[in-house]
Computed example of a mutant assay.
Amino acid sequence: MRHDDRTPTGDVRQYDLTRRIYRALVMHYVEGLKQAEIARLTGQSIATVSRLIKQGHDLGMVEITVRAPFQPSLELERRLARAAGLMEALVVPNLSANDEVALASVGEAAAGLLLSRLKDGDTICISGGKGVSALVAGLNPARRYDVSVVPATGLVEGPLYTDVNYVAAQMAEKLGGRAHRIHAPMFADTVDQRAMLIDMRSTRDILDRARHADIAVVGVGSVTPAGSSYYDLHPELADDRTEIERSGAEAELLAHLLDGAGRVCRYQMNDRLVAVTPEELSRVPFSMGVAVGPAKIGPIRAVLRGRHLKGLVTDETTADAVLPGLEAEAPAARS
């Protein structure tokens, strides 16, 4: 069904197109890059870059300087990418005060970013979670993609958005690709059982595919709020809050607890995980996080400090709250 440009969906799509035009104009006219260089850096074709630049001219965005209709969000993107060392930051305008609408808008924008980088033959590894599920819901590709979608973690019982096999199957169906399933649990009962599960051929093959993916799409989880969905991943976690607090955990990434600096915490359940590690995630050519909301401010900041992601999609309010701590640390990080 076609959406009217006046709907929230249309607003997000128009915003995504405008920011892509703006970025191409800045890279070409301000940074002095050739269209082929812009295409390589943004994962687009030269023809697409040329079309974006032409659209910018047609829209009157090029004079002596480059004008941006969504300047506040675009400025937040520039600052966030610079402070966190990201290849891509996408900050969605707050179109509604409703949390579900905000998540849907961010998910649709993240879907657009994924499609702008996706090409036939790619492998996408994913986590479960509300952010990734929102991206899948927002997918509306213009064509089918010959791609593979693989889980980056083991399985956990719970709502559908936590079932990584289900989310992978939904993404593959929308893209026209293939989904691979994992049959191991997210948490092993013991460290020895984890080693056995990791060594099983079926599990090893799935996780190897995930480690060598071209694109990763993951959620960023909170830990400290009483209602954090992290505690729904395993029955033992709910009784382990004291130890979790003692570990210094501030974020969850691929079910790993991370401290405020983005380092994997010394916590016994981390040692029993059947999942790609944050360090392995950081080696994926383009790893994209999707997260929004007040509970995600600290976790996003921790994950970005750890340099585990190359891209982030969030909303204006969340980005504006994440930035101060990162920008204060940026000079020290670059020295």
Score class of each variant (00 low, 15 high):
128 G>Q: 06
128 G>F: 05
131 G>Y: 09
133 S>R: 15
133 S>C: 13
133 S>H: 13
135 L>S: 12
136 V>E: 08
139 L>Y: 14
145 Y>C: 04
145 Y>N: 06
147 V>L: 04
149 V>I: 01
151 P>D: 02
152 A>Y: 00
153 T>R: 00
154 G>A: 07
157 E>P: 00
157 E>D: 09
158 G>E: 01
159 P>Y: 10
160 L>Q: 13
163 D>T: 10
164 V>Y: 06
167 V>S: 11
167 V>L: 13
168 A>N: 07
168 A>I: 05
168 A>Q: 04
168 A>C: 07
168 A>W: 02
172 A>W: 00
173 E>S: 15
173 E>I: 03
173 E>N: 12
174 K>G: 15
174 K>A: 14
176 G>F: 10
177 G>E: 05
179 A>V: 08
180 H>A: 03
181 R>M: 07
181 R>T: 09
185 P>Q: 08
185 P>I: 05
187 F>A: 09
189 D>K: 11
189 D>F: 04
194 R>V: 07
196 M>L: 10
200 M>H: 07
202 S>D: 10
203 T>M: 01
204 R>Q: 12
209 R>F: 11
210 A>P: 07
210 A>T: 05
212 H>I: 04
213 A>H: 06
213 A>Q: 06
217 V>K: 02
217 V>P: 04
218 V>C: 01
222 S>I: 02
224 T>P: 00
226 A>Y: 04
